[in-house]
Design a protein around this nucleic acid. Structure first.
Length: 295
DNA sequence: CCGGGCCCCTGGATGC
DNA sequence: TGCATCCAGGGGCCCG
């Protein structure tokens, strides 16, 4: 099939963004809350992005929280007085599973590929972090060390589904910059958790060209509403289906059939029928409607 | 301080 | 058919 006809959502590669990470979080809550980690293994690969993981041994996971695309698990005892947390980012291809711990002496990852870390819990289950492309990160860090260990988390913008994400915040943030609006959405400082899929979707919904360098307040208000609406709908459907991402229980999300822009280049715009166009903005593939979304 | 651009990595798709 | 090359992309990092 020529690229101009589009890939079709079913075969799209995809990356966990806020809705996908939130879905993972909700599935992890009953499995991890209150559990003590009794043993830890992690990939010794030199490019592996692990920090302080040895400090997980004999710690208890108090809760499973989320900020943007990061999963945060406060640990007990908290040590260092500032509340150390397990901070996990799935990167592009990271996924988690929770299954009964393998019997002693057996291959702990029999039949599984790309296992980068294992956490054995005190209830006889093992959490596995699998990540073919090794872009994921796993750190044990207190908030006052975010800047050194997970710099994006240190400067993360407001949660888009919290009261702190206001039209004024978005409008003023966009007004302070001449970068393409899509680049600002991908930059986690303005708003947390939006990635390539939902940036394209929100801009299509708000009828804003992804390359726009000036977004006045009325359109910022439309964009704000679109971000909130789309992320809420995606969470309700447990995110978007894609090939190499799996949630804890092995299922995948159901938002794919709702995608209006992302990965739909070559197909007609649902609003006006114009063929959706693909371009590159901020080094990311970008799909938009050249008729509905004007600079 | 900000932002553009490059880089990390590896499976899948594409090209010859 | 098989090998080589290209491409995807979150975010860290460098540099202007």
């Amino acid at each position: 099939m020529p690229a101009a006809e589009g890939n079709g959502a079913g075969s799209l590669p995809g990356v966990p963004e806020l809705p996908e990470v939130e879905s993972v979080r909700r599935q992890l809550v009953p499995r991890l809350s209150g559990r003590r980690i009794v043993e830890v293994w992690w990939d010794p690969h030199p490019q592996a992005r692990f920090h302080g993981v040895d400090r997980l041994r004999n710690r208890r996971i108090e809760r499973v929280e989320r900020r943007g695309k990061f999963l945060l698990c406060p640990l007990d005892p908290a040590t260092e007085g500032h509340g150390e947390q397990l901070v996990l980012h799935l990167g592009m291809t990271g996924s988690l599973s929770v299954e009964p711990t393998s019997e002693a002496g057996a291959d702990p990852d029999a039949g599984l590929t790309h296992v980068r870390a294992r956490l054995d819990l005190d209830d006889g289950h093992t959490v596995r972090f699998r990540d073919p492309r090794r872009f994921g990160r796993l750190s044990v860090v207190a908030p006052d060390a975010y800047a050194e260990v997970v710099p994006t988390l240190a400067v993360l913008g407001p949660e888009p589904l919290s009261p702190g994400f206001t039209v004024a915040h978005l409008a003023e943030g966009l007004a302070r910059s001449r970068s393409p609006v899509k680049a600002r959405l991908l930059d986690q400082r303005l708003v947390a958790g939006v990635g390539n899929i939902y940036a394209d979707e929100a801009l299509w919904q708000a009828r804003i060209h992804p390359g726009s360098r000036r977004v006045a307040r009325p359109r910022a208000a439309l964009l704000h509403a679109a971000i909130v609406e789309i992320l809420t709908a995606a969470i309700e459907r447990e995110g978007t289906t894609f090939r190499d991402y799996q949630m804890v229980n092995g299922s995948s999300g159901r938002y794919a059939t709702f995608l209006a822009a992302y990965g739909q280049h070559g197909r007609p715009c649902r609003r006006c029928g114009t063929t959706l166009r693909r371009t590159v903005i901020a080094q990311r593939g970008t799909t938009y409607c050249p008729t509905c979304q004007r600079i």
